[in-house]
């Protein structure tokens, strides 16, 4: 039984032969069923890393294996892309058909799925992202969040077991962002979809199983969200910030209050405040 769906070993990648590598010596593995987040400022190498994960780019050195298949092996390219789907930032750049269900069908035609099997797969995929009612509509009239959900359905219909999201919520409004993020969370929890979530939003990364922080092509921090967000100094150097609530918690701790580490959300903070109040009552 394969444990890690993606194995990246000592991978470097440069766009130009002599140029500064966009990804430097990265090693990481992504186990089945994981929800991993990747943070980093623009130009830190996150998107390059994403494209290395499904063979869109081949490493300049090191190896990337998806389901044990080496992405450098050209014969495996299609199988790798089918196993590892990708959803990009701009919802308007990835839908191709004039009707939603045709858009979901697009990838299936490419991999030669028999026509009679398609409707069932498409329907299921649209149902999984809550877009079944839109099957016969034109994608152009959908909101940004809905378009991204159709893009996700496209990957699900291909029976991808892992989807790499390259800032899939960056161009959405708060409602659309919430809509897409919770669909992906549910797919991860209920369907065991493995997720690589590249984002600028700390509050999204705070909900991942594990967070990787990239800076100048390298992974400079790795751990659970509470571990990663406790390193205010390193985050600052990478031009990232702690979630505001974490900052508040740390300021209070510095002032001598007994706040536990790992406060990431408003919910965590409310729990801490209540705990402290309860313990002061006992005294």
């Amino acid at each position: 039984m394969l444990k890690n769906l993606i194995e990246i070993e000592n991978v470097s990648f440069s766009y130009e032969e002599e140029g500064e590598p966009a990804v430097k010596n990265v090693s990481l593995s992504i186990p089945k069923g994981a929800f991993y987040a990747v943070l980093g400022q623009n130009g830190s190498g996150k998107s390059t890393l994403a494209k290395l994960m499904n063979g869109l780019y081949k490493p300049s050195s090191g190896t990337v294996k998806v389901y044990g298949m080496d992405t450098a092996d050209d014969d495996k390219t299609w199988e790798i892309r089918q196993r590892a789907g990708m959803v990009f930032q701009n919802p308007d750049n990835q839908l191709v058909a004039t009707v939603v269900k045709d858009d979901v069908a697009f990838g299936l035609e490419n991999i030669g799925v028999p026509t009679e099997d398609m409707p069932a797969r498409i329907e299921q995929a649209l149902r999984d992202v809550g877009m079944q009612e839109f099957a016969d509509r034109s994608p152009h009239h959908l909101s940004g969040g809905q378009k991204q959900r159709v893009a996700i359905a496209g990957a699900l219909a291909m029976q991808s077991d892992i989807i790499i999201f390259d800032e899939a919520t960056a161009m959405l409004d708060p409602r659309g962002r919430q809509e897409v993020f919770s669909v992906v969370q549910q797919l991860n929890r209920n369907r065991g979809l493995t997720v690589v979530w590249i984002t600028h939003y700390m509050e999204e990364a705070a909900l991942a199983d594990r967070v990787f922080v990239m800076h100048r092509g390298e992974v400079v921090l790795e751990g659970t969200p509470s571990e990663v967000f406790s390193h205010a100094d390193i985050l600052k150097k990478c031009k990232l910030r702690q979630p505001p609530v974490t900052e508040i918690a740390e300021n209070l701790r510095e002032k001598g209050f007994d706040i536990s580490s790992g406060v990431l959300t408003a919910e965590d903070m409310v729990r801490e405040v209540k705990r402290l109040c309860a313990s002061s009552w006992k005294k």
Binding site: G40, Q41, K239, L240
Partner: peptide
Amino acid sequence: TAGLDPGSRE
């Protein structure tokens, strides 16, 4: 600031 990373946004 849409779509910018936290540093560029700031």
